[in-house]
Amino acid sequence: MNVHIVNQGVQPILLYAVPLIVGCILLEWWFTRHDEHRKYDGRDFRASLGIGVGSLIINALLKAATVGISWYFYKLIPWRLPNTWWVWGLAYLSIDLCNYVAHYVAHTQRVWWATHVTHHSSEHLNLSTSFRNSWTQHLKIIFFIPVWLTGIHPAIVFACYQLDLLYQFWIHTEVIPKLPAWFEYVFVTPSHHRVHHGRNPQYIDTNFGTTFIIWDRLFGTFQEEIEEPVYGLTKPVESFNVIYLNFHEWADLWRDVRKSKTVREAVAVLFGPP
């Protein structure tokens, strides 16, 4: 099997889900249209939509390269895991753990924060906020190399990655309250993710899980929703320009690196906290 066949096998699951996504957004808009606190803001929604469309275009342009990279690492190891239900489960768990690690690092090292800050730029939280995926997020592909080295076929890995990404859509909302305790203990819920998007002091840098909140519970980054979150960045970005929202942190990072007097200072700027 070659890269072309793998590329053909990577199904666009997210595109198949577009009707459901649009329907859910329309439903949320309807429920919140008279709520001054939660209703959609036109400029904010257009910014989220613009970022999302740009992200889809970049995904399409980089699909072949991403599949090629995954195939390269998959071919490095001599064993193969079968296409069975437990391998799909292992792939999903592995992807989710890698997402947790990538998400955590993106909040603790500035160069990776530049690939993620766009997602936190909105001062609202609704389903459209899930569209705010940075146009430079593909740099985080290195965090998923361990999954390709397990012997799981890349087509399975990509399918599970898309499913994990699709799961994250519904947790970006204020409409859904806390869910039953058993569900809240295992899975990431809107309540957990509201905390993650909050800039309240006790909420910053918590709840990095994407599907499973168990990683946060295991690694000490879990935070319960105990007060109403205030969304956005600690230093708000007063712009709805999608280019600025994607690249302002990169510009600031480059400026600070240029100011560095030594290589050590430059490294500290790149890999120090945001």
Rank of each mutant, 00 (worst) to 15 (best):
N2D: 15
V3R: 06
I5Y: 08
Q11D: 09
I13A: 09
V18H: 00
L20F: 13
I21C: 05
H34G: 09
H34N: 14
H37S: 08
R43S: 10
R46K: 09
G54F: 12
I57Y: 06
N59Y: 01
L61D: 00
A64D: 10
G68E: 01
I69W: 03
P78R: 00
L81F: 07
P82V: 09
P82F: 12
W85K: 02
L90S: 05
L93C: 15
S94A: 15
L97T: 05
V101L: 14
V111L: 13
A114S: 15
H119K: 00
S122W: 01
L125H: 01
T129G: 00
S130G: 02
F131C: 06
F131H: 09
N133E: 10
S134C: 10
Q137P: 03
K140L: 15
P146Y: 03
P146F: 03
P146C: 06
V147G: 08
V147P: 07
T150Q: 10
A155G: 05
L165V: 13
L166P: 01
Y167Q: 06
Q168S: 12
W170C: 10
W170N: 04
T173Y: 01
V175I: 15
V175H: 10
I176A: 10
W182A: 15
Y185R: 11
F187H: 01
T189A: 05
P190E: 09
H192S: 12
H197S: 09
Y203N: 04
F212V: 07
T221K: 08
F222W: 10
E224L: 14
E228Y: 03
Y231H: 01
K235V: 15
V237T: 10
L245W: 02
H248L: 06
A251T: 12
A251K: 14
L253T: 03
D256T: 07
S260G: 03
T262H: 07
R264I: 08
L270Q: 01
